[in-house]
């Protein structure tokens, strides 16, 4: 797993041109490696926040793989996004353990709190909501992740508070 791959706060609002010009350097070390495609996609998404069509086409050319195959990988993993994401990506786990311990209720609470559906981003571009399939923390179920932070034994009623902490940290940070 590429380091800091899940971090999507590094840069925001880059133009397509800027993303493309940074891409070569980002993925250089993975191009000739077997199995290098997924880490390259992770790194690119980590830097740009999402994977634009232009970025994916350039990656497809760099790896000499059909665009359909790269798209197949991107659409297979719920982790990857082809649309700009919020600053914080909230992912509710619906793996088996989380599911039976109320993951679905947590997800409903998140939807309600954020006013968006799975795959969507809030208007202020602060939060995106996703579903995860097991983060490997089943003993702590139900689990949600906000970017790289893991929150354990989440209660639906506490979801609002949890999100508020991020929102106000944001306000504090920018003022």
């Amino acid at each position: 797993m590429a380091e800091n791959a899940t971090c999507c706060v590094c840069s925001e609002g880059l133009t397509e041109q800027e993303m493309l010009s940074q891409l070569d350097e980002l993925i250089e070390e993975y191009v000739d490696k077997p199995g290098g495609l997924i880490p390259a996609l992770q790194i690119a998404q980590g830097r740009f926040g999402y994977l634009s069509e232009g970025v994916l086409k350039k990656i497809s050319a760099a790896f000499d793989k059909p665009y359909s195959e790269v798209a197949g990988v991107v659409s297979f993993y719920s982790f990857f996004s082809t649309v700009p994401r919020g600053k914080y990506v909230v992912r509710a786990c619906l793996g088996t353990a989380c599911y039976v311990r109320g993951g679905k209720e947590v997800l409903s609470a998140l939807k309600k709190q954020l006013g968006i559906d799975v795959g969507e981003t809030t208007e202020d571009r602060l939060f995106s909501l996703d579903v995860g399939r097991c983060f490997g923390a089943c003993g702590l179920a139900p689990v949600i992740m906000v970017n790289d932070d893991v929150h354990q034994r989440v209660k639906p009623s506490k979801v609002g508070e949890l999100l508020k902490a991020y929102a106000s940290a944001e306000k504090g940070g920018t003022q």
């Binding site: 793989k65 059909p66 665009y67 359909s68 195959e69 798209a71 197949g72 659409s75 297979f76 993993y77 719920s78």
Partner: peptide
């Protein structure tokens, strides 16, 4: 050698 088709999604 065209590669127009591939499984998409899961």
């Amino acid at each position: 050698g065209v590669g127009a088709l591939h499984p998409q999604g899961r």
